[in-house]
């Protein structure tokens, strides 16, 4: 599991400050005239549509940052702003300290060649190239030699388990296999930041699950900084270190899965988290009671998921001690608390 006790390190790779993206006739004019004073009235009068409005967030090194929201909430647009595919209307966006708005074309090309990799919802494989050539393509663009390209591409093919099919053409692959190629291709240049826009949405539920596991396996291996877009809350919960929930272009809440479930910022977020099985999200530390010296059973970890320790607690004598990362006893977990979580009851703040 990617999440647990480890806190994302403090170094920020992507900084969004009051980012707006406006669409519609005269969007640029409105943006330059009103700046950050822009409001609903002005937008409505001008017939300009805010796909992303006033988003401020940081993505830190080594974390999986998931952007979650319903269709049309502006997830892709925000992601495209981060990659520089779309120019923002207002605000400031820095990648590793480079301001995308003022960066020259060459700087952008350079950042994309070495720092970013991206996976697309519809795979976006090049139909005229074999699997191997698709994966080697980003290196070809950089003018790398044939041997170097293929050596690296073979490594990536192996990583995603498609070695037998390296000479296939994209149309000869299943959707899941195509997305494996997409993933391998986005990693050939060994980018620091990895963008994925609904990478598994076009796949069947079973394959999707398999690909999520694959994704987690790769991340364990590679330790990238990841921005992952999805409209599937379960997927977000499964994968995320932190989730940003978007609604109508706004980010309404940013937090760990657990924070979202225990403290939803508004009714919109609450509605999402309602159906999520709490035992798969809530950690022992959140619900434990103060330490009880009389307990002698083997302690559980404060960072464990309640669902993972439920059986032990319930089959024992009604309560177990809780230990922190260093092994000190910091609390106790009672069977009643576990049952409450398993029954999806509200967690008292």
């Amino acid at each position: 599991m990617p999440h647990g006790d480890t806190q994302p390190s403090a170094e920020t790779l992507i900084e969004c400050r009051s980012v707006w993206k406006l669409y519609g006739p005269g969007a640029d004019r409105i943006a330059s005239r009103h700046g950050q004073d822009i409001n609903d009235q002005i937008l409505a009068d001008a017939g300009v549509f805010p796909a992303v409005r006033d988003v401020t967030l940081d993505v830190c090194k080594g974390e999986i940052f998931v952007i979650m929201g319903l269709s049309g909430s502006g997830k892709s647009t925000l992601l495209r702003c981060m990659t520089g595919l779309t120019e923002l209307s207002l605000g400031e966006l820095k990648i590793k300290g480079v301001d995308l708005k003022t960066a020259s074309r060459d700087t952008l090309i350079d950042i994309r060649r070495h720092t970013m990799g991206m996976v697309f919802q519809d795979f976006a494989l090049l139909p005229h190239l074999t699997v191997l050539d698709n994966i080697a393509f980003p290196l070809k663009v950089q003018g790398k030699s044939r041997e170097e390209r293929y050596a690296k591409a073979r490594e990536m093919v192996e990583l995603v388990g498609l070695s037998e099919r390296e000479n296939y053409w994209p149309h000869e692959l299943s959707g899941g296999q195509q997305q494996r190629v997409g993933i391998a291709r986005s990693l050939t240049t060994n980018p620091e930041i990895w963008f994925l826009d609904e990478p598994f949405s076009a796949l069947d539920p079973l394959i999707r699950m398999e690909m999520q596991n694959e994704f987690l396996r790769l991340q364990n291996l590679l330790q990238k900084s990841i921005v992952f877009v999805t409209h599937d809350f379960d997927e977000a919960i499964r994968l995320a270190d932190r989730i940003a929930i978007m609604e109508g272009g706004r980010v309404v809440q940013i937090g760990t899965p657990e924070e979202l479930i225990t403290h939803p910022a508004d009714a919109y977020v609450a509605e999402f988290v309602e159906k999520v099985p709490r035992s798969k999200v809530v950690r022992v530390r959140t619900i434990m009671s103060p330490a009880d010296a009389s307990l002698t059973a083997k302690p559980v970890h404060a960072g464990d998921l309640v669902g993972d320790v439920a059986e032990r607690v319930l089959s024992g004598e009604g309560a177990v001690p809780v230990a922190d990362a260093e092994g000190r006893i910091t609390g106790s977990l009672k069977a009643a608390q576990v049952v409450a979580v398993l029954l999806n009851k509200e967690i008292p703040a």
Binding site: R80, T83, L85, I109, D110, R112, R113, H114, M116, G117, M118, F120, Q121, D122, A124, L126, P127, H128, L129, F137, P138, K140, V141, Q142, T189, F195
Partner: peptide, 29 residues
Amino acid sequence: PANIGDFATMSGSSRRQKMWMVMLPAARQ
């Protein structure tokens, strides 16, 4: 497909690389 063009941009292609190595071959059919 728009994403194919975006992919070309994201892999750091220059304008010319994008046209001749991605767009035209992708449109070849």
